[in-house]
Design a protein around this nucleic acid. Sequence first.
DNA 1: TCAAAAGTGTTCGCTATACACCCATGG
DNA 2: CCATGGGTGTATAGCGAACACTTTTGA
Lengths: 229, 229
Amino acid sequence: MEEQKYCYAYPHPAVTTDCVIFGFDGTKLKVLLIERGIDPYKGKWALPGGFLRMDESAEQGALRELKEETGLETAYIKQFHTFTEPKRDPRERVITIAYYALVRLQDVQGGDDAARAEWFALDDVPALAFDHDQILRIATRELRQQIHFEPVGFELLPKQFTIRELQSLYEAVLDVKFDRRNFYKKMQHLELLTQVVNDDPNVPKQPFFFEFNPKKYEELKHKGFRLEF
Amino acid sequence: MEEQKYCYAYPHPAVTTDCVIFGFDGTKLKVLLIERGIDPYKGKWALPGGFLRMDESAEQGALRELKEETGLETAYIKQFHTFTEPKRDPRERVITIAYYALVRLQDVQGGDDAARAEWFALDDVPALAFDHDQILRIATRELRQQIHFEPVGFELLPKQFTIRELQSLYEAVLDVKFDRRNFYKKMQHLELLTQVVNDDPNVPKQPFFFEFNPKKYEELKHKGFRLEF
DNA sequence: TCAAAAGTGTTCGCTATACACCCATGG
DNA sequence: CCATGGGTGTATAGCGAACACTTTTGA
């Protein structure tokens, strides 16, 4: 039997962070899953996650997980729910603080981990370990809700992108269709995007590339403007 | 020294639930605070909260807290954030899963607790124990955001209410002003409210009273309708 | 040269806003 | 009878949805 050296007057649950890592391949929203190497649920796919260290915040823990699996030092992450069902882990009571991360697929390296990691399209995800199906479902729901009114979609696209790519992203995430021309003009008049000037004669002039301008967004928001897709 | 009988191979943080209980008095949004009877922060005001039991979910814990302080068996509650800063409690590492609750002030009884409890207007809250200032600030922000697009405001009003009361609520929570007449008509045409018929000749015919119709709301939402205030 | 995609323009209908008016209530 | 607030009507502006047209690109 393992040595039990951390003792308390009252029972304490274990605490983990799980991280739903989303990426966009130009057509579909994808999520990064890990194949479990140990029991329970050995061989099953699961969300990246791990125990919270005593000297780190949950956000730091989530970023640590992210780094381990993608090599990324930083990314947009958001805490969206904490899962606490007493029996959600068969070994002992474990509560998990769940984050989702939005990453640019182009920037992602293979993880440090020996564990097998793979990107799955959202409608192609296998049955997951623990209650991770539920966690993923809620992550998706929360992302949809957030992306409706906050400019987080840009985190999934290259720094410079075309309006068409932006449209594809929103259509994929929100599962809707926009009129190409109206979407274009709306983005143009929003003043949130700055067009990239390109002098290189070897690269075509169209389509135009844009960058998101966070400062402008904060400015407008402060004036009562509310973004909506 | 206390007996330390719950032992683990790795250190575990303690886990609590805190509950930000909101009420509406017809003019202002209020929050229920507890005066701490023990150290740390003895004598300071704090959010109701307590340790999570090993056999209950966080939601059950939050409802238990709610019951203890208000006598209410049930209410709308929502988990909005989990606070994990390593030093947020000076005694040991404690993470807290925070909920907010929306209650009807008329229904609230005094709590079971010996502890002193009091309702404070939001812009009249004293400095709080632990990081509860931050928790309250974030709770308020999340409530504002939620009430924008979801019909949770009704949880703060009597079952039957006038349009004017509804307007006052939204003006107080969102800190805006609506045109009385436009607000009235908007609510009318929304089809979410059913007017209460009243035959009693002793009670005035105006103002009309309304009830929120959740079934109708679900129906409309399903058809792509989105509520907005 | 030609199809597909990118960029621009115009119209139309809905809805949010602003504001006028009349009725009910209670002193 | 009168002040206050509750309920209803109407005009206008602005924005989003629908759709026509021109230009650029790349095979």
